[in-house]
Amino acid sequence: MDHSHHKEKVCIKTRKVYDWVTRQVDVPLKSFSNQDLEEIFPEHKYHRDGKNICEFFTSHGINPEDFTIRCFLSDEDGNRIDPVVDNDALICQEIIQPNGRQPVTVTLPSGERVTLQKVKALVKGHVVVQILNANGQVVCESDPIPFATAQTFILCAPEGTILDCHISFFECDASLVCTHNFSQLDVSVTLCLEVQMEADVKIEVEARFCDPREEILEATLCPTNKFPPQCPEVFPAH
């Protein structure tokens, strides 16, 4: 039977999105001072003789203001990763509640009352902080610093749906404060979290079967157009 020109009803299995939201998340600020600084910038990497980063700078007559600090997302081994491409390096999963997803009744902008579900998501990852000198060379690099945040969403999430979440944007900032009697590193993380509730479903659609297209053969090496293009707008003259 020729299926190329008529439509018929077919049943397909696909992933249905029940709900989809995006949220900007500001992870709580992480601060490190004194002993904490020694732990995240391990001495065996930089031979600091027991000094933390600020003490190391001071003892060598280096002004911390002459350095820049950058922060980036990494895996647990400290390797830089792209949050949009390498989402597998981040943990983004549902927090299972003892009594399941709790129903929540909300009022829509239209005034309609609907019952949705409370879904909790856990996001975990690591960042690395680097200190660079005026020439852009890395002077010190931290061990991977873990971060985590738990977020609660009100979604259409009936039983049988699963949480799918990923990071669409990631930003990490770090600042180092060094004085004569005070040392502190602050790390802040901002990310955009996209959350979807999904389930595999079977749906009926009206469609027609596809036929393969004609193959496009490799162009010949011999030129077929022997003349340059004309300029009819200006020549021959009217």
Results as ranks from 00 to 15, higher is better:
residue 123 V to W: 02
residue 118 K to V: 15
residue 103 P to L: 12
residue 93 Q to W: 00
residue 123 V to Y: 06
residue 102 Q to V: 14
residue 114 V to A: 14
residue 110 S to N: 15
residue 107 T to S: 10
residue 116 L to Q: 14
residue 114 V to W: 01
residue 101 R to T: 07
residue 132 L to A: 11
residue 117 Q to W: 03
residue 112 E to S: 10
residue 134 A to E: 12
residue 131 I to C: 13
residue 105 T to G: 05
residue 91 I to C: 01
residue 122 L to V: 13
residue 115 T to Q: 11
residue 106 V to S: 04
residue 128 V to F: 02
residue 127 V to E: 03
residue 92 C to K: 12
residue 100 G to H: 02
residue 120 K to L: 05
residue 134 A to W: 02
residue 125 G to A: 10
residue 107 T to I: 15
residue 134 A to Y: 03
residue 109 P to G: 12
residue 129 V to Q: 04
residue 111 G to M: 14
residue 109 P to H: 13
residue 94 E to K: 03
residue 122 L to M: 12
residue 107 T to R: 08
residue 106 V to L: 03
residue 121 A to N: 09
residue 129 V to K: 02
residue 101 R to A: 06
residue 119 V to R: 01
residue 120 K to F: 05
residue 134 A to R: 11
residue 110 S to E: 06
residue 122 L to A: 10
residue 111 G to C: 14
residue 133 N to W: 06
residue 132 L to E: 11
residue 112 E to M: 13
residue 108 L to A: 05
residue 118 K to D: 12
residue 97 Q to K: 07
residue 115 T to I: 07
residue 122 L to W: 03
residue 124 K to V: 12
residue 97 Q to P: 08
residue 108 L to M: 10
residue 116 L to V: 05
residue 132 L to S: 04
residue 126 H to K: 01
residue 132 L to C: 09
residue 115 T to C: 06
residue 125 G to W: 00
residue 117 Q to C: 07
residue 129 V to A: 03
residue 91 I to G: 02
residue 102 Q to P: 14
residue 116 L to D: 05
residue 101 R to Q: 05
residue 106 V to D: 13
residue 108 L to K: 06
residue 100 G to A: 02
residue 134 A to M: 08
residue 98 P to L: 07
residue 111 G to E: 08
residue 125 G to T: 07
residue 107 T to P: 06
residue 95 I to K: 06
residue 96 I to W: 01
residue 123 V to A: 14
residue 94 E to S: 06
residue 128 V to K: 00
residue 116 L to K: 14
residue 128 V to P: 00
residue 117 Q to Y: 09
residue 116 L to M: 12
residue 123 V to C: 11
residue 93 Q to G: 03
residue 116 L to Y: 10
residue 126 H to W: 14
residue 114 V to Y: 03
residue 96 I to C: 04
residue 126 H to R: 00
residue 124 K to R: 15
residue 102 Q to G: 07
residue 119 V to I: 10
residue 108 L to G: 00
residue 130 Q to E: 15
residue 96 I to V: 07
residue 107 T to W: 01
residue 101 R to F: 07
residue 132 L to K: 00
residue 118 K to I: 09
residue 117 Q to K: 10
residue 105 T to W: 05
residue 105 T to D: 08
residue 126 H to F: 14
residue 118 K to H: 10
residue 133 N to F: 04
residue 114 V to K: 06
residue 120 K to W: 07
residue 134 A to C: 05
residue 124 K to M: 15
residue 117 Q to D: 13
residue 103 P to D: 09
residue 116 L to N: 08
residue 114 V to N: 11
residue 105 T to I: 13
residue 123 V to N: 09
residue 118 K to Y: 09
residue 105 T to L: 13
residue 117 Q to S: 12
residue 106 V to N: 11
residue 106 V to C: 07
residue 106 V to A: 04
residue 110 S to I: 14
residue 134 A to G: 06
residue 117 Q to L: 08
residue 109 P to W: 09
residue 100 G to F: 01
residue 130 Q to W: 12
residue 104 V to W: 02
residue 112 E to N: 11
residue 117 Q to T: 03
residue 134 A to D: 12
residue 99 N to I: 04
